[in-house]
Design a protein around this nucleic acid. Structure first.
Length: 593
RNA sequence: GCCCGCAUGGGGUAGCCUGGAUAUCCUGGGGGCUUGCGGAGCCUCUGACCCGGGUUCAAAUCCCGGUGCGGGCACCA
């Protein structure tokens, strides 16, 4: 609808001006609905500030009629163009102000087709047309050496939301979780457990409430085994041997290490599951070793003229591609011949590439360099046709105490969620409108929205308190708007399907609300193409805010029949769009809260 | 040292790609709204484009140079 309106108006402007209007020359404005700056471009070699000219011009307009070709100043041109605009059903009014052509939409004409579209499409309103391309999206991929840290949550949330947005936009999307179940950290834990090193008692005490969760148990073992690894060279040597053993395909060693990772993953998956985040595939690194997939990759790269062997190990010299490492080489294998992550990652991506047309990896900005290496190798050495891109996000810092650094002092997502659920349950209890069962929707929603609303490339200073905030620019605020819609609709006995003729004189608040409703499909598109869930989040707040303003100023149920019908339709449409957009962020829209 | 990203009221944040009018919104602080559909709300006041140049009629937005912060440049992943 919005696209149609804009195209329509661009066409009308083109007729008035005699030239094509560029898309960026028609945009939204706070002073009207849509504004065009085309007069500035047409003015060409202009010397004065259009604002200074404005008054003078308006006077001249009154006294003389001059053609576009005679008066070059934008304010004059804007007046002239405005005068030539043909009447159109979407436009209510056009004004020339300071060189801008300000357009006010005719909402009386827009409301019916918009509402109809939303009602027909329902949960699918805003959906893009089906696309052929298949996207293989990898996100989260946390090391299986402990519980999920709050800082890592940003990856999962951006990833999960992007999946939802890209699917809604029309792509086929398959999600992958890469399990590094054979790395050094895991080997340390596995050997520690095998040799009977006791789990760390302090850590276990700190997380009493979670002591039976597998990922926490692994963490307790990790802390003590890692201490051993750092202080006991003999143990460290045995770890290295253990890894080598596994890499050479010794099935016992592989199983011993991998099973520790799988146990930990079980615990991690529980927390993702409770957040509504699911994955299509878990890809285990140990499988590459079992299936002998790494060796051929190494053999292939060895033949390259960029392959070099140094004291540090063997690898590729990528400096020709602008990727210079300090040692001059991107290491693929250690000097003892065992592979490092880069080689295994290449193997993994070669495999993944077969599954789709585009690979998207959600990665922290600390992986930028590594990602460029992989991309370069895939494209320059393998000439891979599959596209590959990364969605990078900035770090999540903690306010005050750096919980993340002290040994064993981590900030597990489990704890954050438990606190959020507690707080939500208390708020619900206070209001006595809904039952406890909506606590997860509200608590999880608050956390998700808090992290998703910020643009990915900006660092977040994570504040436990603000993440659990329920007022202002938060998910509960948006959910509340949704619940209000539901509440009104519950109390009405009018069958919305049978309304065919209603009063179409909208109040200002209704116009704002409607304008937001028609923008939604465009927001989905931008979010999908720019890979930015925060655009959807920001939109949601604006929509909820306009609903709340409407709610305050425009009584629905007490209104007279024609007005009441119109407002009920608007409320129902808003409910639908809030729900659809919340779903793109993985946030539930409870009907009561 | 080199490379990448970021910098907007007291705190947080949108806008920057595609330059246009009076810079968005949240929070905090001040003031108001409630016997009207759910006050997790609404209205109002307060307060900001890091610094210096450049391009332009016009710069938060584009270019150059600083400064500050984050990240990277591992036989860790």
């Amino acid at each position: 609808m919005y696209q149609d309106i804009k195209e329509n108006i661009r066409g009308i402007l083109r007729n008035a001006v005699g030239e094509v209007i560029k898309p960026e020359e028609l945009h939204e404005s706070e002073l009207c609905d849509l504004t065009s700056t085309v007069a500035f471009r047409l003015a060409g070699g202009l010397e004065k500030n259009p604002k200074e000219l404005a008054e003078e011009i308006v006077d001249r307009i009154k006294t003389a009629k001059i053609g576009v070709d005679k008066g070059g100043e934008p304010p004059y041109l804007a007046e002239e163009i405005t005068g030539r605009i043909e009447p159109c059903k979407f436009i209510r009014k056009v004004e020339a102000v300071n060189g801008h052509i300000n357009i006010f939409l005719n909402y009386s004409e827009i409301i019916l087709p918009t509402i109809r579209e939303i009602r027909v499409m329902g949960d699918g309103y805003g959906r893009g047309k089906p696309r052929e391309e298949k996207i293989v999206l990898e996100h989260t991929s946390i090391n299986p050496s402990g519980p999920v840290h709050v800082g890592r949550l940003r990856n999962s949330l951006i990833g999960d939301s992007l999946v939802r947005i890209l699917r809604f936009y029309g792509y086929k999307v398959e999600t992958h979780y890469y399990v590094n179940d054979i790395g050094k950290q895991i080997a340390i834990i596995a050997l520690g457990m095998k040799e009977g090193i006791k789990p760390d008692g302090d850590a276990a005490k700190n997380y009493m409430g979670y002591k039976d969760k597998e990922d926490f148990k692994i963490l307790f073992h990790y802390i003590s085994a890692n201490r051993e690894f750092e202080s006991n060279p003999e143990f460290a040597r045995r770890v290295q041997e253990f890894i080598k053993d596994a890499e050479e395909g010794n099935p016992t060693a592989l199983d011993e290490i991998s099973s520790v990772a799988r146990r930990c993953l079980d615990g991690q998956r529980k927390i993702f599951h409770s957040m509504g985040i699911e994955f299509d595939f878990f890809d285990f690194e140990s499988d590459w070793l079992r299936e002998g997939k790494i060796k051929p990759v190494l053999e292939f790269l060895k033949k390259s003229r960029y392959f070099k062997t140094t004291d540090a190990g063997s690898g590729l010299d990528l400096s020709k591609f602008g990727l210079e490492r300090e040692g001059g080489v991107s290491i693929l294998t250690r000097s003892d011949g065992t592979s490092v992550y880069l080689l295994r990652d290449i193997t993994y991506h070669l495999d993944k590439a077969k599954r789709g047309d585009l690979m998207i990896n959600v990665l922290g900005e600390d992986h930028k360099f590594e990602f460029r290496e992989i991309k370069t190798i895939l494209q320059k050495f393998y000439h891979l046709p599959t596209l590959i891109e990364a969605v990078h996000y900035s770090f999540v810092n903690f306010e005050g105490d750096s919980l993340s650094t002290r040994k064993g002092q981590i900030a597990p997502v489990d704890r954050l969620i438990d606190e959020a659920l507690d707080k939500a349950a208390k708020e619900i209890e206070k209001r006595k409108i809904a039952g406890k069962e909506v606590a997860p929707a509200i608590g999880l929603g608050a956390i998700k929205y808090h992290i998703l609303k910020t643009s990915p490339h900006k660092p977040i200073n994570f504040s436990w308190k603000r993440a659990l905030d329920f007022d202002g620019d938060t998910a509960p605020y948006i959910q509340y708007a949704h619940a209000r819609c539901c509440s009104i609709l519950r109390k009405s006995d009018i069958n919305l399907d049978s309304i065919d003729n209603f009063d179409k004189n909208l109040d200002k608040e209704e116009e704002e609300l409607l304008f937001n409703l028609i923008k939604f499909p465009g927001v989905v598109e931008n979010s999908a193409l720019e890979r930015k869930p925060n655009l959807t989040a920001n939109y949601l707040y604006a929509l909820a805010h306009s609903l709340n303003r409407f709610y305050r100023k425009c009584p629905v149920l007490p209104a007279e029949q024609g007005v009441k019908e119109r407002r009920l339709l608007l409320v129902d449409a808003t409910r639908q769009v809030l729900k659809n957009a919340l779903n793109l962020l993985g946030i539930d829209a409870p009907e009561r809260m």
